[in-house]
Design a protein around this nucleic acid. Structure first.
Lengths: 214, 214
DNA sequence: TCCTGAGTCGATCAAAAGGTGGAGAGTGCG
DNA sequence: CGCACTCTCCACCTTTTGATCGACTCAGGA
């Protein structure tokens, strides 16, 4: 019988090694390649045409979501299992939208990992109940408009309404309008809750907090 | 020549396997044990008396910092290398205070890992420049009092001053006093900045945001 | 004992934030 | 074209927040 051909995409060296080491001793699985960033991942997928790709979402150069989107456009049969430590809901959401078939946390057991690879290879999906639930909750919520997202980002960065107005080159009244709207959509009552909700959901990355620009 | 005896403490299965697999092929290193949580870690350290312990800070049952503290009290020669994906500054700070000799990010290369193990085994310390810098910045900042920390936690949870007063059973005036004080200590100007700063520095965990209590 | 730091509270005031309603301009779509 | 949506802005109002005084208690250390 044919082995399932697996590609591992993960930037953390130690984790990647761990995955490869784990998978290589399993019968019926074969690791055909590794990649440490998004660009490399695309090259490897094109080259090896793996049955299943294990992919981290946080990757240098090109995010996991982008990799999935690009590959899905050119080669439908490729299947993705998203692997992450634990970020926000937003990433999960986008990855599944992009066409990932499964989502695994890095705390999983070896058995879960292997079972999921087999499930996905068989053409089925696998979403942990805890994640499925949060995803369902998210479904009911409205999307923020681009401008509202801009404002939210500024809020997370600790800007006052006046500062946001200056930054985005609009009036303070408009800032208030957007805030009022986004508070409602996020289901919160003030900017502090909006900020923590945004961080929690992965709408804004924690890294971006450290650096003032980009 | 004798091998350096290493213990690996890490709850994420995949990462632990990766570390063990990496270390076992290195000459002069020997992995004498593994542990997946803090309690197990203490048992293993007592049993195997490793030269160097690689330890994650986020562990079930007993945190990495607590493990280091307890072991340091009973057996001075044990040496610790803290390993983490990337949390806040606060954890790094406490781990180093507790007696850790080095701090490594999971994105490190195999070479860095091995070199650090050798360095630490030789009795020296190894702190990456980026972390050393942030640590230095932190030194200048004042510590929050226990009560201020309570208030900050409530702020991060999106509570208003009135709600905080009720929650902590003090008057709103007192809440304001504490907030005024902690804003100064954190070097920020409003509660939203305080909230993001707290999350960033690891003063409050993101997990605690999801669950209302505990 | 005196002093310090922490915690508590009050009053007052200015600034910021949030809530509501309305309203015009632009875009894209059926 | 008409409709929906977004973005923009204004006015008015209430509530919240933050800043700055001062003051009392309590515990612990010099």
């Amino acid at each position: 019988m044919e082995s399932i051909r697996v590609l591992v995409v993960e930037d953390h060296h130690v984790v990647r090694q761990g995955l490869v080491a784990l998978l290589n001793v399993v019968d019926g699985l074969e690791v055909v390649g590794e990649a440490a960033d998004g660009v490399e991942a695309i090259a490897q997928i094109r080259k090896h045409q793996p049955d299943v790709t294990l992919i981290d979402l946080r990757l240098p150069r090109l995010s996991g979501v982008e990799v999935i989107q690009r590959i899905r456009m050119e080669n439908p049969p490729s299947r993705f299992i998203v692997l992450t430590t634990y970020d926000g809901d937003e990433d999960i959401y986008r990855a599944l939208q992009a066409g990932a078939r499964a989502y695994l946390l890095k705390g999983m057991t070896t058995e879960e990992l292997i079972a999921t690879i087999r499930t996905v290879h068989a053409g089925k999906s696998h979403i942990p109940p805890a994640i499925a639930q949060r995803l369902a909750e998210r479904m009911g919520t409205e999307e923020l408009t681009p401008r509202e997202s801009d404002v939210l980002e500024q809020i997370v960065h600790g800007k006052s309404n006046k500062e946001i107005a200056t930054e985005l080159d609009i009036s303070e009244a408009t800032v208030k309008t957007h805030i009022n709207s986004l508070l409602g959509k996020l289901g919160v009552t003030d900017r502090t809750q909006a900020a923590t909700a945004a961080i929690q959901r992965g709408l804004v990355t924690l890294e971006s907090l450290r650096k003032p620009k980009q």
